[in-house]
Computed example of a mutant assay.
Amino acid sequence: MDQAVFSDSDTGGETGGALATADRRLSACGETLERMVVTGPSRLLDDETVARVRALTGDLAAQLAGTDRDLANAVHAMLVGNRAILTHCHALAVEWRLAMRLSARLALDPVLPPLVQRHCATMMGLIAAQTRSFEATRRMLLVAGDLPADLQNLAYATVRAARADHALTHLAGARADDNGGRLALLHQAVAGLGEDLDHALRVDEAGVSLFFTALAIASGHPRETVVLATAEDDPVRLALLLCATGLPRDDVARQLLALRPDADIALADAAPNAAAAEALLGAVR
């Protein structure tokens, strides 16, 4: 055997680096396995959703890094370590999954639900954004321009930090705003509904995306929290969010069962009124 292999410092460095990486992965694997053994299978983290989140963050990293594969790998590692970006991508994956399920179960068009059809003339921009977003998510791609401005700017800062000495000309001075993204268009759509506003809190009328935005506004909670509440193993948070909007008890029950047919109907009585629901939600923040 060629002893030079063992005396080559570069090779030794590469081997040491690979072993260190393997150690980190093994440690992370152990921590993940421990959590899964304790909590069991989860609606929030089924295999398809995990794969989609991994792909979305990977696509974002590739867009940020350009053709530099090493930089893309470094950026991806940093992105998945950022809770805000990871949570946003998780919510995108869950939103897409629920939209597809309701499309199959209720024949509910994810892009053109009844409420959007009635306001089609004023929602053309939203329709285009929804089509683009759902198609991208289906293909496990991310529309970076649809990220909220704070997350876009965080992503730009991440890639600059990953390679501070790199001439990232395509990101020079890059800043984002919230004016043209899908979430901004959803907010504008809810604000412009007028007498149809109540229908935005009916998922079978509004569709998943518009419903989530309306529920976030009406309950006063972040949209990601609302989306992920639909996928929690126990739908109690979802029930409380619905109660926090001030919807009548029967409407809470209808929306809860539309989103979670397996839910206990008694959860519609989880809080006697909106203030009590918000108090319970605030107690566990």
Rank of each mutant, 00 (worst) to 15 (best):
D59N: 00
A172G: 00
S42M: 12
H166E: 12
Q130R: 10
A18H: 14
L102T: 08
A4R: 15
D251G: 02
Q117C: 14
Q63S: 07
A99G: 09
A274F: 09
G207W: 15
L247Q: 10
L60P: 00
A263S: 08
W96F: 15
A174M: 14
L257P: 02
E135D: 02
D233Y: 10
L281A: 11
H76N: 11
R83E: 12
G16R: 15
I127V: 15
L201V: 01
P114Y: 15
M140P: 00
L33I: 14
M100V: 09
L215A: 02
P148R: 06
R139L: 05
A121Y: 12
D198R: 02
P110G: 05
F6S: 06
R43D: 07
V116L: 09
L238P: 02
A61H: 02
A174C: 05
L171Q: 13
T11C: 01
G30V: 08
S42K: 09
A268R: 09
R97I: 03
A77R: 15
A128V: 09
S103I: 03
D146T: 04
L115R: 06
E14S: 09
Q117K: 15
V143A: 04
A270C: 12
A61S: 01
P41C: 15
L259G: 02
V208D: 06
H90Y: 04
G207F: 14
D250V: 12
A174Y: 06
M78H: 12
G246K: 07
S27F: 08
L71V: 04
L240T: 01
T32R: 14
A65L: 09
L64Q: 02
L71R: 08
I265S: 11
L108K: 07
R223L: 11
T15L: 15
G40P: 08
S42T: 13
A266E: 02
D8T: 04
A77L: 12
D59G: 00
A279Y: 12
V227H: 04
D269K: 01
G207M: 14
D177N: 11
Q63E: 09
V190K: 05
F211Q: 04
N82D: 15
H76K: 03
C120K: 09
M36C: 08
A266C: 02
A216S: 14
H88A: 06
A206T: 11
L280T: 09
A129W: 12
Q255M: 06
G194D: 08
L238H: 04
L215M: 02
T15Q: 13
A84F: 15
D47F: 10
R202Q: 07
L92R: 06
T15H: 13
L280K: 11
A61W: 06
L126V: 01
R260G: 02
C120N: 03
A22P: 00
A276N: 00
P248D: 14
V226E: 03
D10E: 14
R285E: 11
G180D: 05
L193P: 02
L108F: 10
G282T: 13
D68Y: 13
R139M: 03
